[in-house]
Design a protein around this nucleic acid. Structure first.
Lengths: 194, 194
DNA sequence: ATAAATATGGAGGGCGCCTCCGCTTATCAA
DNA sequence: TTGATAAGCGGAGGCGCCCTCCATATTTAT
């Protein structure tokens, strides 16, 4: 589809553009942390000191901005899965990662919407972030299933949906604890043989 | 607080007002079903054929309208808990009710936001609806715990949060199935002794 | 029939979304 | 260095939604 074999007129990308892009992401990050990811885009542009048009040029949709802002977190989460898998027994690794997943969602306060879309999977923008998360959870679940310690007859993603969804309702640290309990019950339920 | 002993000037409530109230609720119900409970209030007023001012007179906040629209459903859900408790063994009754809970949330498509606020408990508007749901789930859980068949170290409401939250992310019939599996795992997890 | 209470509707001010396009600026080639 | 030109900038403008306010219309009670 993409005709890469076009004339490779390689003009160096403009420095000011890249500067603004970073500035906007940084500003958005703090504003989202304050007011959730439904904060006004015009306000973000205002605070960043750029025109609204510039914001839209760099991030054509709200999702594009949100996903860019939280890509770091997603990446870290995926990395954590790998490292936990290497240092803990399968089921424990899974449990710890789920806890960490919830912690991210709760503390980032605004990340839940990301995960909503991410895990809801409507937007193309989240495709790569989604892949990271999906890969992470699958890695851990597969490993635990392989040992025969647990069995799971559903898409692991749906467990994340429940965990993230709970956070988006009961936003705040309260969900942290509730989710931990929930995770324990889920693990126990997956352990139980029929 | 309420000084009921005021002059009981009992003027019959105006008929047109009550008519409009009902009309608005009915209209809102269908619009919410289509577009979720974040649909435009002006559109609802427009479709109902009344002025926007009239809508706001009857329902000062969006929540007031939403909660009025879904009060029926809430009531039915609470009634179902009672009847299931009378006709099924404790754990099975709980399971069936959770399934029904999810079905409501999914099919009403827009009810999830109600439950968000309801179970999130920020708004006073939802107080009585919330009480109904809380009462229902507590009834069923307490019964099952009393027989010693399950144990539960968390607020049952948090289970509903997870179930409803999942629906608000993965809105659609897909969640129906996922939630069923989730419920089975949860029940199994609650059954497992330590 | 008339007064008093009640309800109506929509204009208006505010805000956020997003597009469009004339102007500015950075890059590159000569 | 100096144009030429692609790339980027910004904000005005159109639209829709939120919510308030109040002059007008309708209903009830006397």
């Amino acid at each position: 589809m993409a005709k890469k074999s076009e004339e490779p007129t390689v003009r160096k990308p403009r420095a000011d553009a890249e500067r603004n892009r970073l500035l906007l992401m940084e500003t958005a990050k703090t504003v989202f942390a304050d007011k959730g990811s439904s904060a006004s885009l015009e306000e973000i542009a205002r605070i960043a000191g750029v025109g609204i048009g510039t914001l839209y040029r760099h991030f054509p949709t709200r999702d594009a901005l949100v996903s860019a802002v939280y890509r770091n977190e997603t990446t870290q989460l995926a990395a954590a899965a790998k490292s936990l898998a290497e240092t803990h027994p399968p089921v424990e690794a899974l449990r710890l990662w789920l806890v960490q997943f919830v912690d991210y969602v709760v503390t980032k306060h605004g990340m839940s919407e990301v995960l909503d879309s991410l895990v809801g999977g409507t937007s193309e923008l989240y495709a790569d972030s989604a892949d990271l998360i999906i890969g992470a959870v699958n890695l851990l679940v597969d490993r635990a299933v392989a040992t025969g310690e647990i069995r799971l007859a559903m898409d692991p993603l749906d467990i994340l949906r429940a965990l993230a969804g709970g956070a988006s309702i009961s936003c705040g640290p309260a969900w942290r604890n509730a989710a931990r309990q929930l995770i324990d019950i889920l693990i126990a339920g997956m352990r139980a043989s029929r």
